[in-house]
């Protein structure tokens, strides 16, 4: 059990690191595309690692499955919104250049 705990803890800590890095990126990067890059890393890896760490501690199958579903939902939403915002920004840059 303690081995499982160690794996779970290191996944949680590593996930937290990705969140920290993503937030720093969001604040430090200058343009929308780089910021999106930082944020989608956080959603994919950070939330994925935290979900994995929590699933190991979930205790019951339904609780673990719910955490997995939450991660998949967040992943889908993150992929779509990232693409949509990037496309929107690209359109605007193109429009600004044409003006």
């Amino acid at each position: 059990m303690s081995g499982m705990d160690a794996v779970s803890s290191s996944a949680l800590i590593l996930g937290g690191f990705f969140f920290l890095a993503g937030t720093v990126g969001l604040l430090r990067f200058r343009d929308v595309h780089s910021r999106l890059h930082a944020l989608s890393k956080t959603d994919n890896l950070g939330l994925g690692l935290i979900s994995a760490g929590l699933i190991l501690r979930a205790g019951s199958f339904p609780a673990g499955a719910k955490i997995l579903i939450i991660w998949l939902l967040a992943l889908l939403a993150s992929a779509v919104t990232c693409y949509v915002i990037a496309e929107w920004e690209t359109n605007h840059e193109r429009q600004d250049r044409n003006l």
């Binding site: 779509v80 693409y83 496309e87 929107w88």
Partner: peptide, 13 residues
């Protein structure tokens, strides 16, 4: 466009 289709796919969910 791609984003419009993607957003529409996510909408029901």
């Amino acid at each position: 466009t791609q984003p419009w289709i993607m957003a529409r796919t996510l909408l029901p969910l």
